[in-house]
Write a protein that binds this DNA or RNA. Structure first.
Lengths: 229, 229
DNA sequence: TTTAAAAGATAGTAATACTATCATTGAAAA
DNA sequence: TTTTCAATGATAGTATTACTATCTTTTAAA
């Protein structure tokens, strides 16, 4: 069986659709590798062009600038996570199980998914953790938001918020809890790796601990609310 | 009464201590104003120099680069928040009240504190929300961490973790809960302002709602744990 | 076979992120 | 009072970044 997963993103993210050409796919593939290796600040289109034996101008035909390319990658990641979550919660009855599945998918180190040829999900996961926030922490958030450039993140957030509401319809903050969960799954992992004293996962660096922390956090909030009301 | 609050920070943050000269203080004052106005990406030492009628080279005598200056400002902010929190929890007996004070201080929009002449805390609060993460999301986090450049954040995190442990000694994740609380107090506020559909604070934009969300989150986690064990 | 889009090659510009050097000032030490 | 020395100011210069423009060649469909 040869399944090929293609994720289609908002057209405003690019000048020319990178999924529709060989060069485009090489740009995606190697931008992930290069950003992961040298970091987004040091990453330039010139360096990327050198890596894939094309020219700087060639890359500018696909993406307006490196910020847009990053946003493309980040959106791709959130779309992929939402897809995975929908897959894994299909046919699941219990809202509790759905939420636990979400936590597991978000907080577990990603392995490369072979069904998406040129995208290395493992590296992309690292990029989203260490660079992802830079895609919305800008002076043009609101303009980008109007252009729906954060839609994949919002969709994922809304999906998990649905699970939350299904679990406890009286809980007052399903969206905030959902965005907190998504953000913390990534940033606690980052802290565990780089600033462990901000966590309790010390140096054994066990991601299962993050899962337990998040489960306890989420269900603590959801179950106590049920009691209080 | 003329109280003057001076916060002393890690010497590795700067080349020349900006608190010790008039020019240094003007750099701090106007970097806050300018970063808040144009954003960290567009901010340059040349533009700052123009604002305060000095030269680019003059600013480079104080800070190695703009990233270090940002880290200085962010560290200043966390030191100030820790100071405020210690002030406001002194003589408070109940751990629960201490935690609620922490939540209130972190999640309430800051007003300018006149006791610190050249620092506008209100603007600094905005900067920490929208640019703060960029100070640790770098390829040199670990080197910076070895140089203790994140100490103020860690200290604040540890202080709140103490309150948490005092409230419930059996809770397993005081540091992670503390860092989650600090981060969410800022990022839920940012979302409320710029990406409200990630929250439940819609468009009335009421920070008291964030406080209630955080209280319910934190005490939900802390109280349910007590039950389970 | 033509033709038009994509890619390659090359050049150029303004801004950024610095470093270096030398002159001037101003306040404390001699 | 003079010296002196640190801080600042003024100016220049460099490598890199972040683009834009143009012209040619390749490729793939009409």
């Amino acid at each position: 069986m040869d399944i090929n997963l293609t994720i289609t993103l908002n057209e405003k993210l690019y000048l020319r659709n990178p999924e529709e050409s060989e060069l485009g796919k090489r740009i995606l593939e190697h931008s992930i590798i290069l950003i992961e290796r040298i970091g987004f600040e040091a990453f330039t289109f010139k360096k990327l062009a050198f890596e894939i034996n094309t020219t700087e101008a060639g890359i500018y035909r696909y993406f307006e600038n490196k910020q847009r390319l990053l946003l493309y990658l980040v959106d791709w990641y959130w779309s992929w996570q939402e897809y995975r979550l929908m897959q894994e919660t299909r046919n699941v009855e219990q809202p509790k199980t759905k939420i636990m599945t979400a936590i597991r998918l978000l907080a577990t180190r990603v392995e490369d998914d072979i069904s998406t040829g040129h995208i290395n999900e493992k590296l992309l996961h690292d990029i989203v953790m260490s660079e992802g926030a830079k895609s919305w922490l800008t002076k043009h958030v609101e303009a980008d938001n109007k252009d729906k450039l954060f839609q994949p993140f919002k969709d994922l957030c809304a999906l998990i918020a649905e699970f939350i509401t299904a679990y406890n319809p009286r809980y007052a903050y399903p969206f905030s809890l959902s965005s907190t969960l998504i953000e913390m799954a990534h940033s606690q992992y980052y802290y565990m790796q780089h600033l462990p004293s901000l966590t309790d996962f010390g140096h054994h660096k066990d991601e299962d601990e993050i899962i337990r922390f998040l489960e306890q956090l989420v269900f603590g909030a959801l179950d106590s609310q049920a009691k209080e009301k």
